[in-house]
Design a protein around this nucleic acid. Structure first.
Length: 686
DNA sequence: GAAGGAGATATT
DNA sequence: AATATCTCCTTC
């Protein structure tokens, strides 16, 4: 429609004009908007090398139609505005502390700010940004940057969707149109005249974005995916921060956590938790040091020997020779609790005990694992020099143990220490044995020191991790539900967490409802947004026109008349969308969002199913929990959480205990199927 | 060359 | 604040 419009390169570096991918030498980058352009396809390439170095693209430079001048004209209006703006942009460019991405963001911000903004609007903008930051982005983690308006880099306030399926703020869009641009700023597809003169707000998006912005950050769920994503931006190896480098000191930063288990995951780390290798953490696997061991989730704390939470349980321990009372017999060992040492000041290596250990903190966590019969992962470090079972180098995963008993005794140094009897109970043989089978239940060793023991605790209930002839060592009840709802750094892990979570579930489901096709009423598949801002499944919309042709041939008395365009009204209004229907483009951003939402909901349903099982377990235990009040203050009852399952768990209540114990692992598979079916019910539009 | 001081780091 | 570490650096 327009003569020789200059086109830049797209995100993949392909020139939108000639469709070739020019080499770096053949492209020029605009100094203002940092967009690459194919030099050969420019209608007016720079004449000299000097000009090329300081080149501005056609979108940014031409005084008559350039964005900058328009902004200057429509903005402050004063003569110096343009110069000011350019000076500001140069300043951003020159700022070496900014990343390229940050520079681009600031440039965009400046451009949109320059365009005649009233006072107070900036503040509003900041608020909005804030909300984007800890609201939408964190809440759902779904309305991420790819959904932002490409002009202002924010979630669209009044979103409009082009027929080519791209979303922008109305204001930004209109500003763009005001510059005489009648093509999509993202893909350069032409924008129909009707939309130019009267852009429509996509109200489905409005509601969705508003909802996302108004909810507070929610703890995600404990799904593996979540924990994985949290670590994506870390390097693969442990690293040294700039700060540490400066002082020439330690390399104590952990690299990525590769496994997708929550930090308080009990038991083996299975293949399903290991997206990287898909094999899980195997017995005998070893790592260079505690940092690397941490990355594979076998034992997370990089200093402490016990991983656990008082009142909840301990997930893993490390044997590294820190306590001289330890006694290692391979298949069983006596472990000493932590504490009792004065490490104040800089006495990090102080091995001298100066006070009694108590069953608190980590020691209490171990005691909980003892009472419940939880599986505890054990790693041995080369630093354990007195044990024949310790590895020569590095840190090795030796499998699952159970704590059969714990007590206190007076240790070698004369102060009381907490003691734990660990007995191996893994389906895989230990790294030091030539036996090809895993452990079988074995009689407890005779412990001489038990005679002088105090505060002895033995397990009274059925262990959560136990042996049966058919399956070996398995969970006899659902593993404790992860309390690590948020990623590291979370401090708000309490009862209110559950409320917010409940809300978030609803929000996600409501969000999905917002994305209903206006024809089939189900969540859209391949969503189309018409220029009149109505949303449909691609299939629904295309199917609703019997006559697939766009032009009607007319004849009159043997004479061919001018062909007549067939009017195709939008199913939701009277607008003729026949032009749009010729080449309807799926709103990919919207589709991605919908898919993410569905994925989240599916995971949450799975989660809810598990929680329902948790509750059932709790009910069973209610009788004997009375005597235990340990950690009551900080432990929020799992039973409350279970209500999240919106009735999903109901059915499970009819399942007998015995069956449930045996088929626990297959149960989750069934849940997956159930969840998938539910989801299909919502989303299948075909 | 070994031992230990000191600073960094992550989790409770 | 504590912790069953890691590293670089200094001291013996």
């Amino acid at each position: 429609m327009s003569p020789a419009v200059d086109l830049p390169c797209d995100g993949d570096g392909v020139c939108m004009a000639c469709k070739n991918k020019p080499s770096e030498l053949e492209t020029m980058t605009c100094r203002t908007c940092a967009t690459p352009w194919h030099v050969e396809c420019l209608s007016r390439p720079p004449e000299t090398l000097a000009l090329a170095a300081d080149w501005q693209c056609p979108d940014c430079c031409l005084p008559a139609e350039g964005a900058l001048s328009d902004i200057a004209a429509s903005g402050a209006g004063s003569g110096g505005a343009l110069e000011d703006l350019i000076a500001s942009i140069r300043a951003i460019e020159a700022d070496e502390s900014l990343t390229e991405q940050e520079k681009a963001r600031r440039r965009q911000e400046l451009m949109s700010r320059g365009a005649g903004k009233e006072k107070g609007q900036e503040e509003e903008e900041e608020d909005r940004e804030k909300q984007n930051g800890d609201g939408a982005n964190d809440v759902l983690g779904l309305l991420d940057e790819k959904f932002n308006c490409s002009f202002c880099m924010q979630l669209p306030e009044r979103p409009v969707t082009t027929p080519c399926g791209h979303n922008f703020c109305l204001k930004c869009f209109q500003k763009w149109l005001g510059q005489g641009k009648h093509t999509c700023a993202k893909c350069r597809a032409p924008i129909p005249p009707k939309m130019v003169s009267q852009p429509r707000i996509n109200s489905a998006l409005v509601v969705a974005i508003r909802m996302a912005k108004t909810v507070k950050p929610v703890p995600g769920n404990k799904t593996t995916v979540y924990h994985y994503i949290c670590n994506e931006n870390r390097p693969e190896k442990a690293f040294t921060t700039e700060r540490a480098k400066k002082s020439g000191k330690a390399n104590a930063c952990s690299g990525q956590i590769f496994v997708t288990v929550p930090p308080d995951h009990f038991g083996p780390i299975l293949a399903e938790h290991d997206p990287k290798r898909n094999k899980g953490v195997l017995v005998g696997e070893s790592w260079e040091d505690r940092m690397e061991c941490r990355q594979w989730g076998a034992h997370l704390p990089h200093v402490a020997g016990i991983a656990g939470q008082s009142g909840y349980g301990a997930q893993s321990v490390a044997l590294s020779g820190g306590y001289e009372d330890d006694e290692d017999h391979g298949e069983w060992f006596l472990y000493t609790g932590s504490g009792g040492r004065d490490l104040s000041g800089n006495k990090r290596t102080n091995k001298d005990q100066s006070f009694d250990q108590k069953f608190d903190k980590m020691n209490e966590a171990l005691r909980v694992s003892c009472r419940k019969g939880y599986p505890v992962r054990v790693v041995r470090s080369h630093k354990e020099k007195r044990s024949a079972y310790a590895p020569e180098t590095g840190v090795r995963y030796d499998g699952i143990y159970r704590i059969e008993k714990c007590w206190r005794k007076v240790g070698i140094q004369g102060f009381k220490v907490c003691r734990y009897l660990f007995v191996r109970c893994d389906n895989e043989p230990a790294p030091w044995t030539s036996d090809e089978n895993g452990d079988r239940p074995r009689p407890l060793p005779e412990i001489k020191e038990l005679k002088r023991a105090t505060d002895t605790t033995e397990r009274k209930e059925r262990p959560a991790w136990d042996y049966n002839e058919k399956d070996g060592w398995v969970w006899t009840k659902p593993p404790p539900h992860s309390r690590k709802i948020l990623a590291s750094g979370d401090v708000e892990e309490n009862k209110s967490g559950r409320k917010r979570r409940l809300k978030s579930t609803n929000v996600r489901e409501r969000l999905l409802k917002e994305f209903k096709c206006e024809i089939c009423g189900k969540v859209m598949t391949f969503p189309l947004t018409t220029p009149c801002a109505h949303n449909f499944c691609k299939k629904c919309l295309l199917d609703s026109y019997d006559d697939q042709s766009f032009i009607r041939e007319r004849t009159s008395g043997g004479r061919t008349l001018r062909a007549q365009k067939i009017v195709k009204k939008c199913p939701s209004c009277t607008t003729d969308i026949s032009d749009f229907l010729q080449n309807p483009q799926v709103n990919r951003e919207l589709m991605d969002l919908i898919e993410s939402l569905q994925q989240k909901i599916r995971e949450e349903n799975l989660d809810a199913d598990e929680e329902a099982s948790d509750e059932r377990e709790n009910n069973d235990e209610k009788v004997d929990t009375k005597e235990k009040n340990d950690g009551a203050g900080e432990e929020d009852s799992d039973g409350i959480d279970a209500e999240d399952g919106d009735g999903v768990g109901e059915k499970c209540h009819t399942v007998g205990r015995k069956e449930e114990a045996n088929c626990f692992s297959s149960e989750s598979g069934q849940n997956l199927q159930k969840a998938q079916k539910r989801l299909m019910g919502v989303s299948s539009a075909e």
